[in-house]
Amino acid sequence: MRNEIILKVYRFDPTSGKPPTYKRYSVPITERETVLDALLYVKEHQDATLSLRFSCRMAVCGSCGMLIDGLPRLACYTQISELDTDEIEVRPMSNYPIVRDLVVDMSGFFEKHRSVMPWLIRRDVREQNQPTKQYLQSDEQLLEYLQFSYCIKCGLCYAACPVVTAMDEFLGPQALAQLYRYIRDSRDEGATERLKSAGEFNGVWRCHFAGSCSQVCPKGVDPALAIQLLRRRTLFMK
């Protein structure tokens, strides 16, 4: 058990006009400490200018995604002991514009999420606004999409996807998984419209099943599985 580790943190201030640098901080650690704890120790005791985004510290809010040792992970969800190194490299997530230090601009990611219409579409809009009955659903119908609705929009899959790195227009694993989640929802009636948009050039066909999204997902959503099942639906158009 180590008592101390080195944090190698990416520092970038766009207002200073200087290129990004790495700064090393020596942090005392205890057992069961996460990378987020270490980063907050740095912010409290060593360098208050370090910027990072975090909130819940328990892998629910999904705001502390960063590249830890080269792989997108939630800082609050990554034990220092599981990394098993003396020097941990912390960088902002790839595939996003960097705002400052470890903070990235996720507006493009959220815009793509919004563009797949992540809400229930009903033919009778008036009835949807003033519902007269419950939308009942069986357990089997629930299991078809439940896994994909566990998404916390942390954006790790988007940072891991090799297609997103190359192609900014690609919707990304998160948005396509949500697209599938709403297609499979038995209460939803917009499947035809959704499948049509999934079949565009920046949609489901750009996925090549590299599986990186599922590898890094902290909630077991498995976006790769959702996209492959979505592709089958897009093939048969139903």
Binding site: D69, G70, L71, S94, N95, Y96, P97, D105, S107, G108, F109, E111, K112, A160, P162, V164, T165, A166, D168, E169, F209, A210, G211, S212, Q215, A224
Partner: peptide
């Protein structure tokens, strides 16, 4: 209206495509 999510940098893109270190065999 989407903002460019990353600066289009050919060497970075090719590295991501061709060097899948740390990822699973699907990659």
């Amino acid at each position: 209206s989407i903002r460019r999510t990353s600066r289009q940098n050919l060497s970075k893109v090719l590295t991501t495509m061709l060097v899948p270190s740390r990822y699973t065999i699907e990659r």
